[in-house]
């Protein structure tokens, strides 16, 4: 039937088998884009006339923040799909996305704080953008904690999916925080609807890094999802066959 692909997509086994072919491509592309972007951004992009060399942190700060937000969408939408269609795989993706999102949010907060010191004169201010990002970090941690807090796995799936969905109210607040409140944080440099306020010589390395972070995210999310599938499906026949087939030598 025409819905067959949808059901197949929900099957952890199908995903596990298919995704092993994607991994080297995703990983290779991500690492090469990231290395090109880092060398470009650190050594070859021109110095910022106002901020000097500290601005080079933008090449990791902005991509990490992008993915911290995009990762939240992925986590919340996976949770919603799991709740609505009871798809096993989507709950696994949701669980796998939580620690990755937390790590990326941490990077955005950390690099932002370190960038703040030479630029604003302080590591931390309780302004709208930074505080809402901190809330995002806690939401990720909350989803991680809640998903592991139940002895029945399905209860953890449902509860953490609900928390992830409720937490999406924070996302537009993060986006709009630099416009709604008076803040130290500079407004968005990259815009979808109008020209970006950034010179091409700085824009190209930045977009390289953003693409690299997206690919890295896809790679790592696949890796974490596969690991979690193996963990959850340990009792099923296909995992037994998979593990048995790759056993070094049967005693």
């Amino acid at each position: 039937m025409s819905w067959q692909w949808f059901h197949r997509l929900g099957s952890p086994r199908w995903f596990y088998q298919k995704s092993s072919a994607w991994l080297p491509w995703l990983g290779g592309a991500a690492l090469s884009l990231l290395s090109v972007g880092v060398v470009w951004g650190l050594g070859f992009a021109p110095e910022d006339f106002k901020q000097g060399n500290s601005y080079r942190i933008i090449y990791i700060h902005v991509p990490a923040a992008f993915l911290a937000l995009a990762g939240y969408y992925i986590m919340a939408i996976s949770g919603a799909i799991g709740l609505i269609w009871k798809m096993k795989l989507s709950f696994v993706v949701m669980r796998a996305a939580a620690p990755i999102g937390a790590a990326l949010t941490f990077i955005a907060l950390f690099t932002g704080a370190v960038w703040g010191k030479p630029t604003w004169g302080t590591y931390w201010v309780w302004d709208a953008r930074i505080t809402s990002m901190l809330i995002l970090f806690f939401l990720y941690l909350g989803v991680m904690a809640l998903s592991g807090a139940f002895s029945r796995e399905q209860s953890g799936d449902k509860a953490s999916a609900l928390l992830a969905l409720v937490g999406t109210v924070n996302i537009p607040i993060i986006y709009k925080s630099v416009d709604w409140w008076f803040t130290l944080h500079q407004p968005a440099t990259l815009k979808l609807t109008e020209a970006s306020t950034i010179d091409p010589s700085m824009f190209y390395p930045l977009i390289t890094m953003i693409a690299g972070f997206y690919l890295f995210y896809a790679w790592v999310l696949t890796l974490h999802t596969r690991t979690m599938i193996l963990q959850r499906e340990g009792r099923t026949q296909w995992v037994r066959e998979l593990v048995g087939a790759s056993a070094p030598a049967k005693a």
Binding site: E47, G52, I57, A64, A103, T111, V114, P118, W219
Partner: peptide, 22 residues
């Protein structure tokens, strides 16, 4: 130009976190 510690601390932390994630 004096911003080295900030820039390198940021990049170092990113490398560390990404390696752990992978």
């Amino acid at each position: 130009d004096g911003h080295g510690p900030y820039v390198w601390a940021s990049y170092g932390m990113v490398v560390l976190v990404l390696v752990v994630l992978a």
